[in-house]
Design a protein around this nucleic acid. Structure first.
Lengths: 223, 223
DNA sequence: GGCAAACACGAGAGATCGCTCGCGTTTCAC
DNA sequence: GTGAAACGCGAGCGATCTCTCGTGTTTGCC
């Protein structure tokens, strides 16, 4: 129950079943509008219209526009944790890296395909204040999880290297996700495979010689 | 009383030296504001204030807000072509892939570090209409160039595969750029190296067996 | 039935932003 | 010098957006 009460001035209202239904309805409408226009360009009136209610009704349930996105993000995050929480759990080092990468990618791609608004909310540099914080929190959570996964294969690497590798993995995943979402059907599947390939090839050398993290290139940097 | 010309062609005004100076000044101010707030959130009044002129003066030189970003993008693109145009030219297949990747990454990273507004303008999903077109045009240009570079090493691969690989490379570069720009000094250098590693390891297997593009994993693809 | 609270409405207040307009100043060709 | 055009200003218009408010309706509890 994601009921929030600010210190002091706003006490929690007792919602009726009708209210809960309206909230769900409004969040669904907001997801649709955010998907097509992005957060900043989405007007609260448009969200209310999409939900088939008046602007006043919307503000009966959300104190402001930001709260809509926050609540939507919270529910999305909760569902992600519930459904795919173990996707990045550390695995037995005996597990082939290829399988671990493939499974993790498949799960996350599936989630993002089912909830396109997640990508819209998490990818916009236009989102203000608190949403950015949530974004950063999620990012950090994912990086930590990936670090754990990498540690399964590289128990003795320096922390800084593992963090960098995890950040790079997450960045590659985001880039791949964008490509996957931009294509359909067979081509989409091909991009999923391409993303797996990229991640696998990036990580595979690390599993072979745990002591030599970054093979320094012979050539000095060009001017 | 001179007649208003509103439709059709707007004849170019004869600019004085003072005007050219103002334009440069306004574009510089716009770059600063776009960098800190993004395009949509940047107000024309803020740009004018940053440049130390009045809003009316700004509109002496630009018909609307979009034109400012367009002109800024055009000049950036021009400078990029002039300075780094050959960064992605096809290379002698004898060139080590590691060198080719390293040189290309170094050049583009340098450009983006020198012009942070480039990243801000090209990375915002908030930018409207014509800027998105320019973004897509640049994206397509880069993909085509990368395709050419990949063809240097893979003369006989199917077009679709090369395109996918090029898109993936560009995505990885964008992701890496974001990480590079988010860090400073030594850590930044480490991320540059990490990006090079990722790209190199992704592309390296393709240069060995030109006939087997994607090693199919044991698991069947999910829908 | 009676009542209080939750729900619903929609006009519009208040704020912001892109952009204009009238008018004064500077520059330049002649 | 003189006139025309470029330059410069800043109040404010019109459009848009977030959020409020007064009022009326529905719901749940006694």
């Amino acid at each position: 129950m994601p009921e929030k009460q600010q210190a002091g001035d706003e006490r929690p209202r007792r919602r009726q079943a009708r209210g809960e239904r309206r909230i769900a309805q409004l969040l669904e409408a907001a997801a649709a509008v955010f998907c097509t226009t992005g957060y900043t360009a989405a007007s609260t009136n448009a969200i209310a219209r999409e939900a088939g209610v008046s602007p006043g009704t919307l503000y009966q349930f959300f104190p402001n526009k930001e709260a809509i996105a926050i609540e939507l993000g919270d529910r999305l995050m909760h569902e992600m944790r519930e459904t795919y929480g173990e996707a990045l759990a550390p695995v037995d080092p005996a597990t082939p890296l290829e399988q671990a990468v493939g499974a993790a990618v498949d799960r996350f791609i599936a989630f993002n395909c089912e909830h396109p608004v997640f990508f819209a909310l998490m990818h916009g540099p236009d989102v203000p204040g608190r949403i950015t914080e949530e974004h950063d929190a999620l990012h950090q959570t994912l990086v930590t999880r990936i670090e754990g996964l990498i540690r399964s294969f590289l128990p003795d690497a320096p922390d800084a290297d593992v963090t960098r590798t995890a950040q790079m993995c997450l960045g590659m995943y985001k880039a791949g996700l964008e490509l996957v979402l931009a294509h359909e059907e067979a081509e989409r599947g091909a991009y999923v495979q391409e993303l797996k390939n990229a991640l696998f090839r990036y990580l595979e050398p690390l599993t072979r010689d745990g002591a030599a993290p970054t093979p320094d290139p012979a050539a000095p940097p060009l001017p």
